[in-house]
Lab assay of single mutants.
Amino acid sequence: MQGVVKVNSALNMRSGPGSNYGVIGTLRNNDKVEIIKEVDGWYEIRFNGKVGSASKSYITIVN
């Protein structure tokens, strides 16, 4: 499943599904990500070869 980031500035990509996990990357508006699965309001995603988590509130699913 594919998604597109929708933010005003930037979205942190984290090492796990929650804001208490470390930041491993930064996503910008309109970045395209691969959604692997949903976990507690977060998506596990793949972006630029990295796997991490980002809040699903800022990612829109595209077909």
Rank of each mutant, 00 (worst) to 15 (best):
S55M: 15
V23I: 13
R28P: 03
V51P: 05
V4G: 02
V7N: 07
E38C: 09
E34Y: 11
R46S: 11
D40E: 11
Y43G: 00
I24H: 01
V4W: 03
N8K: 15
M1G: 07
K37S: 14
G16I: 02
I45N: 00
R14P: 03
T26W: 07
I35R: 00
S9Y: 10
V23Y: 05
N8S: 12
M1R: 13
D40S: 09
N48G: 11
N48E: 13
L11F: 03
N48P: 03
E44V: 15
R46D: 06
W42P: 00
Y21E: 05
M13F: 10
K6R: 13
S15M: 08
S15F: 06
N20E: 14
A10P: 13
I59F: 04
E44C: 15
S15K: 08
S9I: 12
K56Y: 01
K32H: 12
N48K: 12
N30I: 03
I45S: 00
S55Q: 15
V7R: 06
V23H: 05
G22W: 06
K56T: 10
I61N: 04
F47W: 10
N30G: 15
V62R: 04
M1C: 14
N30P: 02
G18H: 03
V51K: 08
G3Y: 03
I61W: 02
N29A: 09
K56A: 12
V7Q: 03
W42I: 01
R28C: 14
Y58W: 09
S19H: 15
G3S: 02
N20R: 10
W42F: 08
V4Q: 08
D40T: 05
N29R: 08
N12V: 14
E34H: 10
K37Q: 11
S53C: 15
K6A: 08
W42D: 02
R28E: 10
I45T: 00
K50G: 06
Y58S: 12
I36G: 02
E44K: 06
V62H: 08
F47E: 02
R28K: 13
T26K: 12
Y43I: 03
L27M: 06
S57A: 14
N8C: 15
K50P: 02
G52N: 01
E34L: 11
R14A: 04
N48T: 05
Y21F: 13
A54K: 01
E34D: 11
M1W: 13
D40K: 09
A10I: 15
G52I: 03
D40W: 06
S9N: 13
T26E: 11
S53A: 14
V5S: 02
P17L: 04
Y43L: 06
V4C: 12
N30S: 07
I36K: 02
I24S: 03
N48V: 05
Y21S: 05
P17I: 04
S57W: 12
V39A: 08
T60Y: 12
G52C: 05
N8G: 12
V62G: 07
Y43H: 01
R46M: 12
F47M: 06
V51T: 12
A10R: 14
G16T: 02
G16W: 03
S55C: 15
G49T: 05
N12P: 15
V7H: 10
V39Y: 12
L27K: 01
G16M: 03
S9T: 14
N8R: 12
N20S: 11
L27C: 05
Y58D: 12
K6L: 08
G25C: 13
Y21H: 09
G49D: 10
M1H: 10
G22C: 12
R14I: 05
M1E: 07
M13I: 15
G3R: 02
G25D: 13
N12M: 11
M1S: 10
S15Y: 06
E38P: 02
A54W: 02
I35M: 01
N29Q: 08
N8E: 14
R46Y: 11
E34K: 06
G22M: 12
I35Q: 01
